[in-house]
Amino acid sequence: MKHQKGLENAYVIKDSKKLRMGYTTGSCAAAAAKAAAGMLLTGDLVEEVALMTPRGILLHLLIEDIRMKYDDNRKVKEVSCAVQKDGGDDPDATHGAFIYATVTRQERGITIDGGKGIGRVTKPGLARLVGEAAINPVPYRMIEEETAKVCKENAYQGGMKVIISVPEGEKLAAKTFNPRLGITGGISVLGTSGIVVPMSEDALIASIRLEMQTLTAQGAEYLLITPGNYGEAFASRMHKLNRSTEMKCSNYVGETIDMAVELGIKGILFIAHIGKFIKVSGGIMNTHSRNADCRAELMAAAYLRAGGEADTARRILSTYTTEEALDLLVHSVHSEEDMLEKTMEQVCEKVEFYLKNRCRDRIQIGAILFSQTKGKLGETSEVQNLMEKINRGEI
């Protein structure tokens, strides 16, 4: 019979698909610590532990790779064991990794640290101090509480030292945000609920916020923000632009602006592909296609405002990509006019209006728009001023 972990009926529906939930590295670390502490004090094997997560889901996790060390009197002096991470149907870099806890006795108190494969904080602004292991507050508390419960159940009055490690952690960290956050040497032990919700928007937005907090803690006042890899690649070709405050916002343009206002950022310069920011020209602040599209409609509207004629506008409405629409602008019947430039002026005007509307003019904000085939298409009115301030504010 297949082992029941407690998540058999835990799932979410995304795009009409049933996606299985999983459990966090924090839950794995807490369960491994609980098992190791129990084996240290009793000498008995613990092959499964029950763990109540902050979300209220009771997990039953298997304990693997148990190793015990003994002193000269055959008393257990150290226990190491692991729990394998199950991220459910979330595209999680740590899915399948083994999260280890090594537990030894000490005179008093419970201390927790990171070993091999657990990252170290090197920049201020994160949940842990510079130099500490990247074990976030909720997982840290879970490890501490589970270890303390075992001590109490066994009437043990001394202390314990818990070392969390992930043998493949340094390799896995390259697939996470850690290098951008200044966390070196491995992964972070994460989780606020103990449960992984597949493709959680909250988790993505939280990671954007964390990166922004890190930059502000280092003194950044003006940020360079790209939605994704296209924007990052385009920015990298702007050799006179200081990119030390660069970060990504994915589709979450509105949420990113809100965070910047809340954290006291003075200005944002977006560098974005037209396929993303044509949507912003219509006030769409989450640019994922499942929320809204309207790319062709917005491009056609901008073209008409620029003085374009109806036939080309109808053809723009039939396009599937913004690059295709741009080609129509270049070959517009207004051959004596640069309709691409005039249309992009209209687009940038609307982008600026909606960006400023979102931040209520509480920060300086601007955008550079580009295309993969045609390069820079246009910019909003405050771009040059923002670039000067970004270039003066290297961190």
Rank of each mutant, 00 (worst) to 15 (best):
357 N>Y: 11
43 G>T: 13
342 K>G: 01
261 V>S: 04
209 R>H: 08
65 D>K: 11
170 E>P: 02
124 P>Q: 03
120 R>K: 13
212 M>K: 04
344 M>A: 00
223 L>M: 10
393 G>R: 11
289 S>G: 12
103 V>N: 11
374 K>D: 01
387 M>W: 06
350 K>G: 01
339 M>N: 02
3 H>P: 06
258 D>Q: 11
107 E>M: 06
250 S>I: 14
225 I>M: 02
229 N>V: 13
7 L>E: 13
92 D>H: 06
334 H>G: 05
303 Y>C: 10
9 N>V: 14
358 R>Y: 08
149 K>T: 07
286 N>H: 15
164 I>W: 09
107 E>C: 03
179 P>N: 06
45 L>F: 10
96 G>W: 03
307 G>Y: 14
123 K>H: 12
252 Y>S: 01
309 E>R: 15
317 L>K: 14
94 T>I: 06
365 I>G: 05
327 D>E: 15
379 E>Y: 05
37 A>N: 08
182 G>R: 00
243 R>W: 05
42 T>N: 08
230 Y>V: 09
191 G>I: 06
356 K>H: 14
149 K>A: 03
153 E>G: 11
33 A>N: 06
230 Y>Q: 10
222 Y>D: 03
330 V>L: 13
224 L>W: 07
49 V>C: 02
178 N>G: 04
354 Y>F: 10
320 Y>S: 03
377 L>E: 08
154 N>M: 09
162 V>H: 03
158 G>A: 08
131 G>S: 01
285 M>T: 14
212 M>F: 12
137 P>S: 14
384 Q>E: 09
388 E>P: 05
202 D>R: 13
353 F>N: 01
348 C>M: 09
369 L>T: 09
219 G>W: 04
22 G>R: 04
88 G>R: 04
103 V>P: 05
187 I>Y: 01
24 T>A: 00
82 A>H: 05
68 M>Q: 07
227 P>Q: 06
271 I>R: 07
309 E>C: 15
106 Q>T: 04
333 V>W: 13
113 D>H: 09
119 G>N: 07
59 L>A: 01
320 Y>I: 06
340 L>C: 03
333 V>C: 08
283 G>S: 03
194 G>F: 10
34 K>E: 08
24 T>Y: 01
373 T>G: 00
270 F>H: 06
75 K>C: 14
21 M>Q: 12
161 K>N: 15
102 T>C: 08
3 H>Y: 12
160 M>H: 10
325 A>N: 09
324 E>D: 06
120 R>T: 07
273 H>E: 01
284 I>A: 02
269 L>A: 14
49 V>I: 05
370 F>K: 02
375 G>T: 02
244 S>W: 04
388 E>Q: 13
177 F>D: 02
199 M>A: 02
316 I>K: 05
310 A>K: 06
389 K>T: 12
371 S>R: 01
103 V>I: 15
232 E>D: 08
298 L>Y: 15
197 V>S: 11
386 L>G: 12
178 N>H: 04
320 Y>M: 11
370 F>P: 00
237 R>P: 09
100 Y>D: 08
